[in-house]
């Protein structure tokens, strides 16, 4: 089964968009995705709940042997991942690749 690309389009990853993200990731896993990618290109604001959602999503994918990556990571998100020392735990990539796309 193909890569599922999940978009975050309100420009912010917080409690509510984080919950939606986690649901989309669960759906992608249930649908048998071999890889889950989150498109982060518009993220201007990530709060601690949003970061928690990324961590939980990563761990859920890992637990099922599915790869999880962040696409087009913006400066604020990268700074947050570096500050919290989580940058090395996430696989990051620039987009320009295809895949089934759903949006949060």
């Amino acid at each position: 089964m193909a890569t599922q690309v999940i978009g975050i389009e309100q420009g912010r990853l917080d409690t509510s968009s984080g919950d939606t993200l986690e649901r989309r990731v669960a759906d992608a896993l249930a649908a048998g995705a071999s890889e889950v990618a989150v498109s982060c290109g518009t993220l201007a604001l990530v709060d601690s709940s949003g970061l928690g959602s990324l961590v939980r999503s990563l761990k859920r994918c890992r637990a099922q042997g599915v790869s999880f990556k962040l696409l087009d990571v913006t400066k604020p998100l990268l700074r947050l991942l570096e500050m919290t020392r989580l940058a090395s735990a996430f696989e990051m990539e620039h987009s320009s690749r295809s895949g089934a796309k759903t949006s949060v």
Binding site: G52, V55, L58, K59, M83, T84, R85, L86, S88, A89
Partner: peptide, 14 residues
């Protein structure tokens, strides 16, 4: 002074 460890309770990172 940067952090050396990842947050408590996340279970990933250094």
């Amino acid at each position: 002074l940067s952090a050396s460890g990842s947050p408590l309770g996340v279970g990933i990172g250094p």
